[in-house]
């Protein structure tokens, strides 16, 4: 690529990112959203499949109160006993949100709007919805629909698609 011309037929080039979000701790949610948004910014298609606890990230009543895990997360450098004290999760979450804001990374609700505007498709897992008794009306308007695992794999068809589980 000498002149910056992007050859869309280049072999091995990523064409589509299929992200599966199975957790809703703030760090996992942001990792997933940044990957999905970053793909769109590069002209790569992206879709997110929200399953198990990942559903929390698109549930209207829960998405603004997601937290960072301070227990069972050695990279936080907080001893497990202290991480379990009341208020520790809230404190770590507040600190992370402040850092994010400084980098112009939006809160979860606004991020979902941004993803939808960018063309990222968002799907809720049917089984997880049944399991947690979540109705479609509980989910943000940006949702593109409810899918089974089979439906998700169908959408992943084609050359240059990558699937990532978060």
């Amino acid at each position: 690529m000498g002149t910056g011309d992007v050859n869309v037929h280049e072999p091995g080039k990523i064409k589509k990112m299929m992200l599966i979000l199975s957790k809703a701790t703030l760090d996992n949610v942001y990792a997933c959203f940044i990957l999905a948004n970053g793909a769109r910014m590069e002209g790569i298609e992206s879709e997110i499949f929200f399953t198990f606890f990942g559903l929390n990230a698109i549930e209207k009543s829960k998405l603004e109160s997601l937290r960072v895990a301070t227990v069972g997360n050695p990279a936080m450098r907080i001893p497990t006993l202290i991480g379990g004290l009341p208020g520790m999760e809230a404190l770590a979450t507040k600190m992370m949100k402040k850092e994010m804001d400084e980098l112009d990374i939006p809160p979860v609700g606004e991020f979902l709007e941004m993803l939808s505007a960018s063309g990222t498709k968002m799907w809720a897992c049917k089984l997880a919805m049944d399991m947690f008794h979540v109705e479609e009306s509980d989910i943000v308007d940006e949702l593109d629909g409810v899918l089974t695992v089979g439906g998700f794999y169908e959408r992943a068809a084609g050359e240059g698609t990558h699937v990532i589980f978060i």
Binding site: V8, E42, D104, P106, M114, A117, G119
Partner: peptide
């Protein structure tokens, strides 16, 4: 950032993607 363009009032994020497709 894409977000800052979206908030500028010049165009929405959706419009930015439409104006400059495949890597706005």
């Amino acid at each position: 950032t894409i977000r800052s363009v979206g908030k500028s009032g010049v165009c929405s994020i959706k419009e930015l993607y439409a104006l400059f497709p495949d890597g706005p």
